[in-house]
Amino acid sequence: MAVPERPGAESIRVHGWWYAHRYLILRRASQLLVLALFLLGPWFGVWLVKGNLASSLTLDVLPLSDPLVLLQVFASGSVPATAALIGGVIVLVFYLLVGGRVYCSWVCPINIVTDAAEWLRRRLGIKGGAHLSDKTRYWLLGGILLVAAISGSVAWELINPVSMVFRGLVFGMGLAWGVVAAVFLLDLFVGRRAWCGHLCPVGAFYGLLGEGAVLRVSAVDREQCDDCMDCFAVCPEHQVIRPALKGADKGLGPVITSGHCTNCGRCIDVCGRDVFVFTTRFNKEPRRAVAGANPKSEVSS
């Protein structure tokens, strides 16, 4: 099966460029907005949000903390104070609902780097690379918790590119640009989606959180699929699409239930036939409930 070099061409023709990039644009806006909120303080003296993604305080009332970092604190044998715990629970509940890896595609700054690497990789036609198991991330997740437990220190945060880059942008990069470059080159040459899809233990953790998420992408109109492979080409975790899109014979529902799905919505963007929509995991109807929910596609088809 050939993967298209420029996926989404049909969608652009049918829907127009903006509509065929709507979730991508929204995601970039979301990622930049989160960053901007943190930078308003240090750059312009408007302190809406203080801290960084590890832990923050919004408007001096709302604490938010990264549950994975707190898990490392627990593993290292300490108990964080109440403020951090409350913040951690709020974040935990949020991602349990919307899907853990929403963090990856809508918040994480590294996502922009790896998306850029993936785009360039496709355009340059770079194929193959090292064979990495996508289970490696779970081993790494276990590994970092083990190191925290043995060393009694939040050790992973010494090298975690995800927190390092965001903290760097907000507080000062130092040599962290080198880490950004390393992740970019890793994804460009070593393997497709090598970091986010195979190695990143942060993503692995949020993936586990997202196993039961309410907000999901669903291939509601999967009978419309013409096997153009565009969604497979753009999906950062393309193994999650097949069961939902092609699983009708095996009696599988159209909802993408895997926790690995980042809810990035790129499959919805690039599909010229409007197969995919955002819905809840409980909506198991294979067809759209309301015909003509997407008037634009009707006009163009």
Binding site: G41, W47, K50, G51, N52, A54, S55, S56, L57, S65, D66, V69, L70, V73, S76, G77, S78, P80, A84, G152, S153, V154, E157, L158, I159, S163, M164, R167, G168, V170, F171, G172, M173, G174, L175, A176, G178, V179
Partner: peptide, 30 residues
Amino acid sequence: SKCIRCGLCVRDCPYDTLKLAELGDEVALG
């Protein structure tokens, strides 16, 4: 074992005394 490197103490230091260790500094990152 307790510091999660969020930088909130740095933000609330009114005299800009506190700094957050960057990559390349000799202090534990963040």
